[in-house]
Design a protein around this nucleic acid. Structure first.
Length: 615
RNA sequence: GCCGACAUAGCUCAGUGGCUAGAGCGGCUGUUUUGUAAACAGCGGGUCGUGGGUUCGAAUCCCUCUGUCGGCUCCA
């Protein structure tokens, strides 16, 4: 998606580079058929059709060299306008069928098929203008392209760029269309910014959760079990469980109660909820003894709705707040799967509250406050989109109800001092929602938490309660997830921390290293291990027959927060200086501890979930 | 699902038509009894992802399938 928020000059630079790249490709492959070449986040791309010839990264130096030539030439970008019909002739004459198609659409409908990326490339005078008579072109040197602009003044005013990759892309994003090759470049105003961006990518590669998951022994994906179905090792399971435990504690603190539903259901549930037909990712259970057809649950709401519906509810019973951390199954297309971030079995810290309309505000406030607590603890800044309806009539339910709900949501967001912006038209058809984004240590934004108001499912399942006046009323449903998919969140969190987890989540909090393997040393270590476990600490022991140096190194590589070497001195009661992982900022001069003091301090630190260290 | 690349030991990788497929790390065994980022020696460990083909001969070339990676598309 093109980013219209970037500064105009940078936008123009990137846009100009797209033209320069297309021009370079045309110099090298004169028969190239050009598609579109918009600006994207951090750079630009151009879709090209080389009639069967495949580009690869090996071609980049050539293309880049040609681009540099054009840049050096300092060709001015000239804007020209011509009538649509002349433009169509032009496209035909120069053998540019894709451009011709765009122009024909423009002429006929005044727009191309609604994709932002198409819009960028067109000489559309005004969006929604149903009668386009003239279109604009930009020309630099021997290259002319249909384009709305804007552009840099000349080809030598385009900052720093680098070609990154080439990938297949369907013409106009439609599967049935011919596949073109999309050449991607990144570009920044200065070489320094480009360098910083490339460094960030490098750092991201080092932190890739798939790599760290392997190195730190957190999860595995087995071909026999299947793609998209990660298995969690003991270490990885600690991470999951600690995060989930915290999420559940927070939810309990605002009145949520745990419920449980089996992982499969008769498909009738989803026929009634209206999801069945619209949900191609479902996993059907193909053979069962009974005549019933079953499927694995792809979500939880229809299930818990049955709990609500199981008995008459009074206005006094409201809200009913159900939470469950449970796994659901979605048959993602094979090309979509990616480490932990896109899987087929995903576990959500899900909850559903059935609320009276006058309770929406309190519920939202409670949820937003625990979301804030969660991400404050995890040391990740939040930003929030309030996804509201626009004027279209695709939305379900009474517009007045929506208006009230949206006003409530915004009020709460303000009171909770959230950094929010309103996105009109982004609401789900069933209700407005709050999309919560977290930023990681590399400045990347991820959507994890979400709060959604739902007016539809209570309707579908005919949920109701008896109000004060004896009338039956329909509740609203509030869906929320704090971490979202635990698997996906872990992918973000592993990369955010680079595997250096704070003590409360660390799979191994303390590594004990023996100086030697003499009997009394081993005995001493065993005593300390027992004491640590008594305090609820997760300790690892290394009394292998290796040098202390090597054992220290192993502990460092596994990113254990605290490492303690135990030998003669400690046995005879000496204080110890724990080795503290470097990212854990030590507030004062490293204190000396007796072993017992040290263990207690770490146990308290874990309990209070501090992100740095209290040593 | 589509386009492209890739798949060699637990891990990281070398080997691109010619003897019995290699290295480092990890593992195991022994020597050593170690004090804050790698002691020394030895030993195991691979149907070169799967199935087929070409060839006197295939890890190496071709095809199929599976999986992985980068994108596209999708994420109600």
């Amino acid at each position: 998606m093109s980013d219209q928020n970037q500064p105009d000059n940078l936008y123009a630079m990137r846009h100009s580079l797209a033209h320069i790249m297309a021009s370079a490709v045309q110099h090298l492959w004169p028969d190239v058929k050009l598609g579109v070449g918009p600006v994207v986040e951090n750079g630009f791309y151009y879709d090209v059709d080389l009639g069967g010839e495949q580009l690869s990264a090996d071609d980049f130096p050539r293309i880049e060299a040609e681009m540099q030539k054009i840049i050096k030439a300092g060709e001015p970008f000239e804007r020209l306008e011509m009538p649509v019909l002349d433009a169509i002739d032009w496209a035909r004459k120069y053998g540019q069928p894709y451009k011709e198609e765009l122009l024909n659409d423009l002429q006929r409908a005044g727009t191309t098929v609604a994709k932002d990326l198409d819009m960028d490339m067109l000489g559309v005078a005004a969006e929604g203008d149903s009668k386009v008579e003239a279109v604009s072109f930009y020309r630099n040197g021997d290259f002319t392209d249909l384009c709305r602009g804007p552009h840099a003044e000349a080809t030598n005013k385009v900052g720093a760029f680098k070609l990154m990759r080439v990938a297949g892309a369907y013409w106009r994003g439609k599967e049935g269309n011919p596949q073109m090759q999309r050449l991607y470049g990144v570009a920044f105003a200065t070489p320094k910014e480009l360098r910083q961006y490339l460094d960030m990518l490098e750092e991201a590669k080092k932190r890739d959760h798939r790599k760290l998951g392997q190195e730190l022994d957190l999860f595995v994906i087995s071909d026999l079990v299947g793609p998209g179905l990660p298995l969690f090792t003991p270490r990885g399971t600690v991470l999951r469980n600690e995060l989930v435990k915290f999420s559940e504690e927070l939810q309990r603190s605002i009145g949520y109660e745990e419920v449980w539903a089996p992982h499969m259901t008769r498909i009738e549930l989803y026929k009634k909820s209206g999801h069945y037909e619209k949900y191609p990712e479902r996993f059907d259970v193909s053979s069962t003894e009974s005549d019933d057809q079953f499927m694995l649950k792809p979500m939880n709401c229809p299930h818990v709705a049955q709990i609500f519906a199981s008995r008459p509810r009074s206005y006094r019973d409201m809200p009913q707040r159900y939470m469950e951390t449970t796994t659901m199954y979605r048959d993602e297309k094979s090309g979509e799967l990616h480490g932990l971030s896109r899987v087929r079995a995903l576990t959500q810290d899900d909850s559903h509250a059935f609320v009276r309309h006058d309770q929406i505000e309190d519920e939202m406030r409670g949820i937003l406050s625990i979301v804030k607590q969660m991400y404050l603890t995890l040391d990740m800044p939040l930003s929030v989109d309030l996804s509201f309806r626009d004027e279209q009539d695709k939305y379900f339910g009474d517009p007045r109800l929506w208006e009230e709900a949206q006003a409530t949501i915004e009020k709460v967001a303000k009171e909770e001092e959230l950094n929010y912006k309103i996105e009109l038209g982004e609401a789900a058809f069933y209700g407005p929602k709050i999309d919560i984004y977290v930023s990681d240590a590399l400045g990347r934004r991820w959507q994890c938490a979400t709060v959604q108001l739902d007016f539809v499912q209570p309707e579908r399942f005919e949920l109701e309660y008896t109000d004060q006046d004896g009338q039956m009323k329909r509740p609203a449903m509030v869906h929320k997830a704090i971490l979202g998919s635990i698997e996906r969140f872990l992918s973000v969190y592993i990369e955010h921390t680079a595997g250096k987890f704070p003590v409360w989540v660390a799979p191994e909090q303390i590594r004990l290293i023996s100086v030697n393997q003499e009997e009394k040393t081993v005995e001493f270590l065993n005593t300390i291990v027992a004491q640590s476990r008594g305090l609820g600490l997760r300790v690892g022991v290394d009394n292998s027959n290796e040098s202390v140096g090597k054992k220290i190194r192993a502990a460092e590589l596994s990113k254990v927060p605290y490492t303690v070497v135990l030998g003669e001195k400690e046995i005879s009661g000496a204080e110890l200086v724990p080795r503290i992982r470097k990212d854990l900022v030590v507030s004062e001069e490293a204190k000396r501890y007796t072993i017992q003091e040290f263990l207690k301090t770490v146990a308290n630190e874990a309990k209070s979930r501090v992100s740095k260290t209290s040593l």
